[in-house]
Amino acid sequence: MAFRARHLLGIEHLAPDEIVTVLDLAERYVALNRRTVKRTEALAGLTQINMFFENSTRTQSSFELAGKRLGADVMNMSMQTSSVKKGETLIDTALTLNAMHPDLLVVRHASSGAVDLLAQKVNCAVINAGDGKHEHPTQALLDALTIRRSKGRITGLTVAICGDVAHSRVARSNMLLLGKMGNRVRLIGPPTLVPSAFGDMGAEIHDDMASGLKGADVVMMLRLQKERMDGGFIPSEREYFHRYGLDADKLSHAEPDAIVMHPGPMNRGVEIDGTIADDITRSVIQEQVEMGVAVRMAVMDLLAQNLRAERGRAAVDGTYA
Protein backbone atom coordinates (compact mmCIF):
# COMPACT_ATOMS: atom_id res chain seq x y z
CA MET A 1 0.00 0.00 0.00
CA ALA A 2 1.33 3.37 -0.94
CA PHE A 3 0.25 5.73 1.76
CA ARG A 4 3.00 6.74 4.12
CA ALA A 5 1.67 9.89 5.75
CA ARG A 6 1.17 10.06 9.48
CA HIS A 7 -1.08 13.12 9.28
CA LEU A 8 -2.99 14.68 6.44
CA LEU A 9 -1.99 18.32 6.84
CA GLY A 10 -1.93 19.29 3.19
CA ILE A 11 -1.62 18.08 -0.36
CA GLU A 12 1.87 19.63 -0.33
CA HIS A 13 3.20 16.63 1.60
CA LEU A 14 1.54 13.90 -0.51
CA ALA A 15 3.20 12.06 -3.39
CA PRO A 16 1.21 11.18 -6.54
CA ASP A 17 1.10 7.47 -5.64
CA GLU A 18 -0.36 8.33 -2.23
CA ILE A 19 -3.06 10.41 -3.91
CA VAL A 20 -3.94 7.50 -6.20
CA THR A 21 -4.08 5.14 -3.22
CA VAL A 22 -6.62 7.40 -1.50
CA LEU A 23 -8.75 7.68 -4.63
CA ASP A 24 -8.71 3.93 -5.28
CA LEU A 25 -9.78 3.09 -1.75
CA ALA A 26 -12.41 5.84 -1.86
CA GLU A 27 -13.97 4.16 -4.90
CA ARG A 28 -14.66 1.13 -2.72
CA TYR A 29 -16.28 3.32 -0.12
CA VAL A 30 -18.45 4.97 -2.77
CA ALA A 31 -19.85 1.53 -3.52
CA LEU A 32 -20.32 0.78 0.17
CA ASN A 33 -22.11 4.07 0.77
CA ARG A 34 -24.65 3.23 -1.92
CA ARG A 35 -25.64 0.03 -0.16
CA THR A 36 -28.40 -0.13 2.41
CA VAL A 37 -26.06 -1.31 5.14
CA LYS A 38 -23.20 1.17 5.03
CA ARG A 39 -21.13 0.13 7.98
CA THR A 40 -17.67 -1.39 8.24
CA GLU A 41 -15.45 -1.91 11.23
CA ALA A 42 -12.22 -0.36 9.88
CA LEU A 43 -12.07 2.17 12.72
CA ALA A 44 -13.80 0.04 15.37
CA GLY A 45 -12.49 0.85 18.80
CA LEU A 46 -10.84 4.06 17.63
CA THR A 47 -11.88 7.53 18.77
CA GLN A 48 -12.28 10.39 16.34
CA ILE A 49 -12.64 13.94 17.60
CA ASN A 50 -13.81 16.70 15.29
CA MET A 51 -12.50 20.07 16.45
CA PHE A 52 -13.99 22.87 14.46
CA PHE A 53 -12.72 26.28 15.51
CA GLU A 54 -14.57 27.76 12.57
CA ASN A 55 -18.19 27.20 11.65
CA SER A 56 -18.90 24.39 9.24
CA THR A 57 -21.93 22.29 8.56
CA ARG A 58 -21.09 20.26 5.51
CA THR A 59 -17.48 19.39 6.21
CA GLN A 60 -18.13 18.54 9.84
CA SER A 61 -21.13 16.32 9.05
CA SER A 62 -19.20 14.68 6.23
CA PHE A 63 -16.35 13.77 8.60
CA GLU A 64 -18.81 12.69 11.28
CA LEU A 65 -20.66 10.39 8.90
CA ALA A 66 -17.40 9.01 7.49
CA GLY A 67 -16.16 8.14 10.96
CA LYS A 68 -19.44 6.55 12.03
CA ARG A 69 -19.64 4.42 8.91
CA LEU A 70 -16.15 3.14 9.67
CA GLY A 71 -17.23 2.23 13.17
CA ALA A 72 -15.26 4.88 15.08
CA ASP A 73 -16.49 6.59 18.22
CA VAL A 74 -17.01 10.13 16.99
CA MET A 75 -17.16 13.22 19.12
CA ASN A 76 -17.85 16.72 17.85
CA MET A 77 -16.39 19.63 19.70
CA SER A 78 -17.71 23.00 18.79
CA MET A 79 -14.76 25.14 19.70
CA GLN A 80 -16.61 28.41 19.41
CA THR A 81 -18.52 27.73 22.61
CA SER A 82 -15.74 26.05 24.55
CA SER A 83 -12.80 27.04 26.67
CA VAL A 84 -11.25 28.87 23.72
CA LYS A 85 -13.64 31.65 24.66
CA LYS A 86 -12.17 31.56 28.16
CA GLY A 87 -8.71 32.35 26.82
CA GLU A 88 -7.25 28.87 26.50
CA THR A 89 -4.58 28.70 23.83
CA LEU A 90 -4.76 26.37 20.87
CA ILE A 91 -1.90 24.28 22.21
CA ASP A 92 -3.46 23.88 25.65
CA THR A 93 -6.72 22.79 24.04
CA ALA A 94 -4.80 20.29 21.96
CA LEU A 95 -2.95 18.92 24.95
CA THR A 96 -6.19 18.58 26.90
CA LEU A 97 -7.75 16.60 24.09
CA ASN A 98 -4.61 14.56 23.62
CA ALA A 99 -4.88 13.40 27.21
CA MET A 100 -8.20 11.78 26.29
CA HIS A 101 -6.31 9.52 23.85
CA PRO A 102 -8.10 10.19 20.60
CA ASP A 103 -6.79 8.32 17.57
CA LEU A 104 -7.92 10.72 14.87
CA LEU A 105 -8.21 14.45 15.25
CA VAL A 106 -10.05 16.38 12.55
CA VAL A 107 -9.29 20.08 12.84
CA ARG A 108 -10.54 23.21 11.16
CA HIS A 109 -9.11 26.57 12.18
CA ALA A 110 -9.33 30.12 10.88
CA SER A 111 -5.53 30.63 10.90
CA SER A 112 -3.14 29.33 8.26
CA GLY A 113 -0.72 26.90 9.85
CA ALA A 114 -2.77 26.32 13.00
CA VAL A 115 -3.33 22.65 12.19
CA ASP A 116 0.40 22.10 11.57
CA LEU A 117 1.09 23.67 14.94
CA LEU A 118 -1.42 21.43 16.66
CA ALA A 119 -0.12 18.29 14.94
CA GLN A 120 3.30 18.90 16.51
CA LYS A 121 1.81 18.66 19.99
CA VAL A 122 -0.37 15.54 19.86
CA ASN A 123 0.41 11.89 19.24
CA CYS A 124 -2.64 10.89 17.22
CA ALA A 125 -3.23 11.27 13.49
CA VAL A 126 -4.33 14.79 12.54
CA ILE A 127 -6.46 15.63 9.53
CA ASN A 128 -6.59 19.18 8.31
CA ALA A 129 -10.22 20.06 7.60
CA GLY A 130 -9.20 23.54 6.47
CA ASP A 131 -6.71 26.01 7.99
CA GLY A 132 -7.17 29.68 7.20
CA LYS A 133 -6.18 30.42 3.64
CA HIS A 134 -3.70 27.58 3.49
CA GLU A 135 -4.98 24.08 2.67
CA HIS A 136 -8.10 21.91 2.64
CA PRO A 137 -6.67 18.59 1.48
CA THR A 138 -9.78 16.37 1.71
CA GLN A 139 -11.65 18.84 -0.51
CA ALA A 140 -8.96 18.56 -3.19
CA LEU A 141 -9.04 14.76 -2.92
CA LEU A 142 -12.82 14.60 -3.24
CA ASP A 143 -12.64 16.98 -6.20
CA ALA A 144 -10.02 14.73 -7.79
CA LEU A 145 -12.23 11.67 -7.28
CA THR A 146 -15.20 13.49 -8.80
CA ILE A 147 -13.12 14.52 -11.81
CA ARG A 148 -11.65 11.05 -12.25
CA ARG A 149 -15.09 9.42 -12.17
CA SER A 150 -16.48 11.91 -14.65
CA LYS A 151 -13.51 12.22 -17.02
CA GLY A 152 -12.04 8.76 -16.58
CA ARG A 153 -8.65 10.18 -15.63
CA ILE A 154 -7.00 12.74 -13.35
CA THR A 155 -4.11 13.67 -15.60
CA GLY A 156 -3.66 15.65 -18.79
CA LEU A 157 -6.78 17.76 -18.19
CA THR A 158 -7.23 21.51 -18.37
CA VAL A 159 -8.80 22.71 -15.14
CA ALA A 160 -9.98 26.28 -14.64
CA ILE A 161 -10.24 27.46 -11.04
CA CYS A 162 -12.34 30.61 -11.01
CA GLY A 163 -12.99 33.41 -8.59
CA ASP A 164 -11.66 34.20 -5.14
CA VAL A 165 -8.37 32.29 -5.26
CA ALA A 166 -6.63 34.62 -2.80
CA HIS A 167 -8.83 33.72 0.16
CA SER A 168 -9.35 30.10 -0.81
CA ARG A 169 -7.67 27.11 0.80
CA VAL A 170 -9.67 24.95 -1.62
CA ALA A 171 -7.91 26.60 -4.56
CA ARG A 172 -4.46 26.09 -3.03
CA SER A 173 -4.98 22.41 -2.32
CA ASN A 174 -6.54 21.79 -5.72
CA MET A 175 -3.78 23.65 -7.50
CA LEU A 176 -1.16 21.53 -5.76
CA LEU A 177 -2.97 18.25 -6.38
CA LEU A 178 -3.79 18.93 -10.01
CA GLY A 179 -0.22 20.07 -10.64
CA LYS A 180 1.24 16.96 -9.01
CA MET A 181 -1.00 14.73 -11.15
CA GLY A 182 0.06 16.43 -14.39
CA ASN A 183 -2.86 18.69 -15.27
CA ARG A 184 -2.90 22.19 -16.69
CA VAL A 185 -4.22 24.63 -14.09
CA ARG A 186 -5.69 28.01 -14.97
CA LEU A 187 -6.65 30.59 -12.39
CA ILE A 188 -9.31 33.06 -13.46
CA GLY A 189 -10.43 36.07 -11.51
CA PRO A 190 -9.93 39.77 -10.91
CA PRO A 191 -6.25 40.50 -10.14
CA THR A 192 -7.18 41.58 -6.61
CA LEU A 193 -8.35 38.04 -5.91
CA VAL A 194 -5.73 36.04 -7.82
CA PRO A 195 -2.19 36.38 -6.38
CA SER A 196 0.18 36.84 -9.31
CA ALA A 197 2.73 34.76 -7.40
CA PHE A 198 0.81 31.62 -8.38
CA GLY A 199 1.81 32.37 -11.95
CA ASP A 200 5.44 31.66 -11.00
CA MET A 201 4.40 28.28 -9.68
CA GLY A 202 3.10 26.82 -12.89
CA ALA A 203 -0.49 28.04 -13.05
CA GLU A 204 -1.74 30.17 -15.94
CA ILE A 205 -3.44 33.35 -14.82
CA HIS A 206 -6.36 34.97 -16.64
CA ASP A 207 -8.47 37.94 -15.67
CA ASP A 208 -11.06 37.22 -18.32
CA MET A 209 -13.47 34.27 -18.20
CA ALA A 210 -13.77 33.85 -21.98
CA SER A 211 -10.06 33.36 -22.59
CA GLY A 212 -9.51 31.44 -19.36
CA LEU A 213 -12.29 28.93 -19.95
CA LYS A 214 -11.30 28.22 -23.56
CA GLY A 215 -10.81 24.49 -23.92
CA ALA A 216 -11.28 23.76 -20.21
CA ASP A 217 -12.35 20.22 -19.27
CA VAL A 218 -13.24 21.17 -15.72
CA VAL A 219 -14.61 24.46 -14.42
CA MET A 220 -14.16 24.82 -10.71
CA MET A 221 -15.99 27.76 -9.18
CA LEU A 222 -14.99 29.18 -5.81
CA ARG A 223 -17.13 30.88 -3.23
CA LEU A 224 -16.57 34.59 -2.80
CA GLN A 225 -15.25 34.52 0.79
CA LYS A 226 -16.84 37.67 2.03
CA GLU A 227 -16.06 36.77 5.65
CA ARG A 228 -12.31 36.63 4.99
CA MET A 229 -12.11 39.94 3.20
CA ASP A 230 -11.13 43.12 4.98
CA GLY A 231 -11.80 46.05 2.74
CA GLY A 232 -12.85 46.10 -0.88
CA PHE A 233 -11.40 43.54 -3.23
CA ILE A 234 -14.15 43.93 -5.83
CA PRO A 235 -16.23 46.96 -6.80
CA SER A 236 -19.57 45.24 -6.15
CA GLU A 237 -21.19 41.83 -6.24
CA ARG A 238 -23.19 42.69 -9.34
CA GLU A 239 -20.09 43.77 -11.26
CA TYR A 240 -18.36 40.61 -10.07
CA PHE A 241 -21.23 38.42 -11.26
CA HIS A 242 -21.29 40.22 -14.57
CA ARG A 243 -17.61 39.60 -15.26
CA TYR A 244 -16.83 36.41 -13.33
CA GLY A 245 -20.13 34.75 -12.42
CA LEU A 246 -20.53 31.46 -14.29
CA ASP A 247 -23.50 31.53 -16.65
CA ALA A 248 -24.36 29.64 -19.83
CA ASP A 249 -22.70 32.24 -22.02
CA LYS A 250 -19.33 32.09 -20.25
CA LEU A 251 -19.51 28.31 -19.94
CA SER A 252 -19.90 28.05 -23.71
CA HIS A 253 -16.19 28.89 -24.05
CA ALA A 254 -15.22 25.69 -22.24
CA GLU A 255 -15.20 22.22 -23.81
CA PRO A 256 -18.74 21.07 -24.65
CA ASP A 257 -18.47 18.26 -22.11
CA ALA A 258 -16.81 20.34 -19.41
CA ILE A 259 -18.05 19.68 -15.90
CA VAL A 260 -18.88 22.39 -13.38
CA MET A 261 -17.79 22.08 -9.77
CA HIS A 262 -18.26 24.14 -6.62
CA PRO A 263 -17.01 23.32 -3.11
CA GLY A 264 -20.09 24.92 -1.55
CA PRO A 265 -21.79 26.63 0.01
CA MET A 266 -22.75 28.54 -3.13
CA ASN A 267 -23.64 32.19 -3.46
CA ARG A 268 -26.14 31.84 -6.27
CA GLY A 269 -26.14 34.92 -8.44
CA VAL A 270 -22.70 36.00 -7.21
CA GLU A 271 -20.22 33.46 -8.53
CA ILE A 272 -22.59 31.02 -10.21
CA ASP A 273 -25.90 31.25 -12.01
CA GLY A 274 -28.54 29.04 -10.38
CA THR A 275 -29.51 27.31 -13.60
CA ILE A 276 -25.93 26.18 -14.23
CA ALA A 277 -25.58 24.88 -10.69
CA ASP A 278 -28.77 22.85 -11.08
CA ASP A 279 -28.07 21.56 -14.60
CA ILE A 280 -27.40 17.88 -13.96
CA THR A 281 -25.78 17.43 -17.35
CA ARG A 282 -23.01 19.88 -16.42
CA SER A 283 -22.92 20.29 -12.68
CA VAL A 284 -21.32 17.61 -10.47
CA ILE A 285 -21.83 19.62 -7.30
CA GLN A 286 -24.03 17.02 -5.61
CA GLU A 287 -21.62 14.25 -6.55
CA GLN A 288 -18.82 16.22 -4.90
CA VAL A 289 -20.72 16.01 -1.63
CA GLU A 290 -21.14 12.24 -2.06
CA MET A 291 -17.44 11.78 -2.87
CA GLY A 292 -16.60 13.84 0.20
CA VAL A 293 -17.82 11.13 2.57
CA ALA A 294 -16.05 8.36 0.65
CA VAL A 295 -12.74 10.23 0.42
CA ARG A 296 -12.80 11.05 4.11
CA MET A 297 -13.47 7.41 4.92
CA ALA A 298 -10.51 6.41 2.77
CA VAL A 299 -8.19 8.98 4.36
CA MET A 300 -9.15 8.00 7.89
CA ASP A 301 -8.88 4.29 7.09
CA LEU A 302 -5.36 4.76 5.68
CA LEU A 303 -4.20 6.98 8.54
CA ALA A 304 -5.60 4.50 11.07
CA GLN A 305 -3.73 1.66 9.37
CA ASN A 306 -0.49 3.64 9.65
CA LEU A 307 -1.28 4.54 13.25
CA ARG A 308 -1.89 0.90 14.15
CA ALA A 309 1.29 -0.19 12.40
CA GLU A 310 3.27 2.51 14.22
CA ARG A 311 1.86 1.47 17.57
CA GLY A 312 2.45 -2.17 16.76
CA ARG A 313 6.10 -1.44 16.09
CA ALA A 314 6.31 0.64 19.25
CA ALA A 315 4.78 -2.20 21.28
CA VAL A 316 7.41 -4.59 19.92
CA ASP A 317 10.15 -2.09 20.72
CA GLY A 318 8.64 -1.50 24.13
CA THR A 319 8.32 2.24 23.51
CA TYR A 320 4.52 2.32 23.45
CA ALA A 321 2.96 2.33 26.88
Binding site: E12, S112, G113, D131, G132, K133, H134, E135, R169, R172, P195, A197, F198, D200, M201, D230
Partner: peptide, 16 residues
Protein backbone atom coordinates in the same frame (compact mmCIF):
# COMPACT_ATOMS: atom_id res chain seq x y z
CA UNK B 1 -1.45 46.53 8.17
CA UNK B 2 -1.99 42.97 9.36
CA UNK B 3 0.85 41.54 7.28
CA UNK B 4 2.70 38.51 8.64
CA UNK B 5 5.10 37.82 5.77
CA UNK B 6 6.41 39.47 2.61
CA UNK B 7 4.01 39.20 -0.32
CA UNK B 8 5.12 36.75 -2.98
CA UNK B 9 5.26 33.06 -3.77
CA UNK B 10 5.92 31.96 -0.23
CA UNK B 11 3.09 34.05 1.23
CA UNK B 12 0.70 32.82 -1.46
CA UNK B 13 1.57 29.18 -0.87
CA UNK B 14 1.33 29.42 2.89
CA UNK B 15 -1.90 31.41 2.76
CA UNK B 16 -0.52 34.16 4.98
Amino acid sequence: HGAAVTAGKFAALRGL
